[in-house]
Amino acid sequence: MTEPAQDSYQDGNALAGPLREIFAVDVTAAAGQCVHCGLTGPVASLRVYGPAPGLVARCPACDEVVLRLVRGPESVWLDLRGTVSLRIPLPARGVPDGSEADTT
């Protein structure tokens, strides 16, 4: 890496603490898709810039903003406009087998 020190960023695991405050699951394990280039990958693989209160998570492929999180004393602002969707893994649960979920 020849990038200068001022470009230093952390990986997306730096989001684990702040996101754990607002979600019941570990969102860094979720797979997100970048709005800008379509890359899909774990939130933990994003590049996280800036110390609190403002965190900016950028796509490792295109450098565009995927997620922003601002922690105020009484509120958290979460901006996901750079994210197409998050696929969040959950513990296995009974999946409807069709016989009881007839919606036709």
């Binding site: 200068p4 001022q6 470009d7 810039y49 800036g50 110390p51 403002g54 900016v56 950028r58 450098d63």
Partner: peptide
């Protein structure tokens, strides 16, 4: 201190 929201 240096703060940034992205690459320089």
């Amino acid at each position: 201190p240096v703060l940034s929201a992205g690459p320089t």
